[in-house]
Design a protein around this nucleic acid. Structure first.
Lengths: 139, 139, 139, 139
DNA sequence: TTTT
DNA sequence: TTTT
């Protein structure tokens, strides 16, 4: 039976998205996202930051490349996926990623403006609330 | 600023929960959870299963120990947490876990009955929809 | 700026879906869904049931018509939408509905078999985890 | 069996929270929240705003009274609840509300500063990521 | 490596 | 009635 595998994050990009193109031309964007939590410990405020590896495919990767940047606040919805790989020493390791299915930019209007984009009315419908229509992801 | 780090899963336990008690008596339960996704690939049905490491603390661990079992269908809400550890060879590795904040059992009523529990009206409010009231988790 | 409007429900259908076709042929399915919550009140178990009006459009409505039935357990993801209408006395009233964006059937395999469907391997990828690809909904 | 009834919203307050105290002293805060969605219709950008009635109880209401204000951007998690009431003409009507279980403020640091609060370091752990510990709500 |  |  089918199950549910859903992740909801609101956080800041730790770096600009890194874009790769697979053989066949499929675009893949990836970047780290920080979600911080503040709580009281013995009367002192403590901040705990969790880092997530975000991966975006195809059309979503293109939009990410265009609008997401280090420091931006973003809402991301996706699913968990753990895959194995071999490091340089040939040791098998595992990594868990959040494969994004859609994202929405949060924050001030100026936050949506990028270097390469016009400063007036640059934001399109696709920038906020972009939904991946490619559910035929290769995994 | 604070962010959001939320995971929502519906899946089946791959094993009975494993219960440990830390020095101080704090209970920790852990078990693998499978979420399956079925999709069409070239006209054939393909099932993809993702495995998640679930961790429950304190009161939630106690309830898990009492009611959760291999094969049960459960809804879990929690957050992502990646931690490092050294394997037996002393190699540093990372693992990502879902730290559960509450869970709800899904499925038939008979699914809530366990070996050790009475067969009549055994299910209490705590079994379905248990919420962790210990937000002072040690991480 | 764009926001987030998301609803996640797991519950049982109170009735079979009711299917209508708008002028233009667009299919709309609607049905009530019950989500129950059990809690302790003064030592006694009390069950509280909340009823939700679910609406599905286009392809999702077709799948609902085919597979969803009174009593089935289903996971639904969607968004809130409040609209006004006039009752028979001409009094303006409001109703809040959950416009589903995708759903997944939960429960036993036999629960996925319907009257009109073959009893062997009838379940297709579309039955569980159907995602609405029509984001151009008329509202 | 227990179900899931969960709402996740990110939006702006349409008004300051309105605080009432029930007999017994229980605090209740309520306010409208707007979630906007932008999409393309025939090449033109169209914005659709949905309004939600948010209700917060007890400790959560107190925190809301202290920190939430008209215009603020906030993440809210809660559940749906439909209740009936009689309007001034004695006509029975229904209203659906989102009973918040926790909220997190989003946006710039200056957005967390209120009239009555000191401008330096005013924000405490409670302002972002407040979780309602009173699950014994009166409904 | 983000943000407050 | 919010925000962009």
């Amino acid at each position: 039976m089918s199950g549910i595998n859903k992740v909801i994050l609101v956080g800041h990009l730790g770096k600009d998205p890194e874009i790769r193109h697979l053989e066949g031309g499929v675009a893949v964007a990836s970047f780290p996202l920080a979600t911080s939590e503040t709580f009281n410990k013995d009367g002192r405020k403590v901040e705990q930051t969790e880092w997530h590896n975000i991966v975006m495919w195809r059309g979503l990767a293109d939009v990410a490349a265009k609008y997401l940047q280090k420091g931006k606040l973003v809402y991301i919805e996706g699913k968990l996926r753990t895959r194995s790989f071999e490091d340089k020493e040939g040791i098998k390791k595992y990594t868990t990623e959040v494969v994004a299915e859609n994202f929405t930019m949060l924050g001030r209007k100026t936050d949506f403006e990028t270097e390469g984009a016009p400063r007036n009315g640059a934001r399109t419908a696709e920038t906020d609330g972009y939904r991946n229509d490619a559910d035929d992801l290769p995994f």
